[in-house]
């Protein structure tokens, strides 16, 4: 099924995701904070969701029948904001206000200030519960809404995640898709050395989910997995997306060091060069 994704679409999504990664680096540099590693790992997943999978309309952000996106790993807010801006939900210029006083772009998504995010998140282990509630809500109202919860893998150590997984399976929420950004690292180090969550897919299957393990940087596989999830209406799906923490910037890849570290001007410049900007653009 994934093979049916046309090459032009893949290229266009790759180009968009590269823009998201550039924005993430710039936003983290400008705000001297944020969460680089996990924002870069989730960039392709969020791009695929916002530019292809989700039924949303930037002109009607409050459209009741829209699909919902809960970024449970709220610390990857920079990637979400960039993708929302590129999709036309708000001006891209506003990204420069990220994490600044008075900005709608809080360090973690805040739907009171920025109504086009579907849930205020930032406390790990809670986003999936909100997504379960939204999926139940859509079912009760017989709306076609589908709900996508994007979780970090570190969050799979939180009790709330497993509680909510149980609830989603018990109520056979076929309109719920859980996407796990399996980049393998949390703030303190590799997840499997801090507190292992493997065998993750087996656990999720035992919890009653249709599971699919994919390369979270391959748009054919990402879109294929979403299509399979859409076809399975009898129960919820989990897409375990194997990703690279810090993806796209060689010296940030596969380490926890950049989980919550802001780049220096020089580091940001080198990162932007790797993300395809010219030396003069990168230095700006």
């Amino acid at each position: 099924m994934g093979d049916e994704v046309p090459a032009e679409l893949v290229e266009s999504l790759q180009a968009t995701a590269r823009e998201v990664r550039r924005d993430v680096v710039r936003m983290n540099l400008a705000s001297r904070g944020g969460y680089l590693g996990g924002s870069l790992s989730v960039a392709d997943l969020l791009t695929a969701l916002l530019f292809r999978e989700l039924r949303v309309d930037p002109q009607r952000p409050a459209w009741a029948d829209r699909d919902r996106l809960v970024l449970s790993k709220g610390h990857a807010a920079a990637a979400l904001y960039s993708a929302l801006a590129l999709r036309g939900f708000f001006p891209r210029d506003e990204l420069t206000t990220f994490r600044q006083f008075g900005s709608r772009l809080q360090g973690m998504p805040d739907r009171i200030r920025l109504p086009m995010v579907d849930a205020s998140t930032g406390a790990l282990g809670q986003g999936l519960g909100m997504a379960v509630g939204m999926a139940l809500d859509a079912r009760l109202d017989r709306r076609a809404t589908r709900v996508y919860a994007v979780l970090g893998d570190g969050e799979c150590q939180a009790g709330g995640t497993w509680e909510s997984l149980m609830a989603g399976a018990h109520h056979r929420l076929g309109n719920l898709v859980v996407v796990i950004d399996r980049n393998g690292f949390e703030s303190d180090g590799p997840i499997e050395s801090v507190l292992g969550i493997e065998p993750l897919v087996e656990k999720l299957r035992a919890f009653g989910y249709r599971t699919e393990e994919i390369d979270g940087h391959d748009f054919r596989e990402i879109l294929g997995a979403f299509a399979h999830a859409r076809a399975a209406t009898d129960r919820p799906s989990v897409v375990v997306a194997r990703t690279v923490k810090g993806k796209g910037v060689s010296f940030m890849e596969n380490t926890h060091v950049w989980h919550a570290r802001a780049p220096t001007k020089d580091e940001a410049e080198r990162a932007l060069l790797e993300l395809g900007l010219s030396p003069s653009e990168a230095a700006r």
Binding site: A119, G129, G133, L140, A167
Partner: peptide, 26 residues
């Protein structure tokens, strides 16, 4: 019967699920 959900001993996530149910005005 269709409008009550017993979530078992899930006091914490019940609050998140409640929020998700309520965000569209319910």
């Amino acid at each position: 019967p269709g409008r009550i959900f017993d979530l078992g001993v899930m006091d914490q996530s019940m609050m998140s699920i409640a929020a998700g149910l309520a965000l569209d005005g319910r």
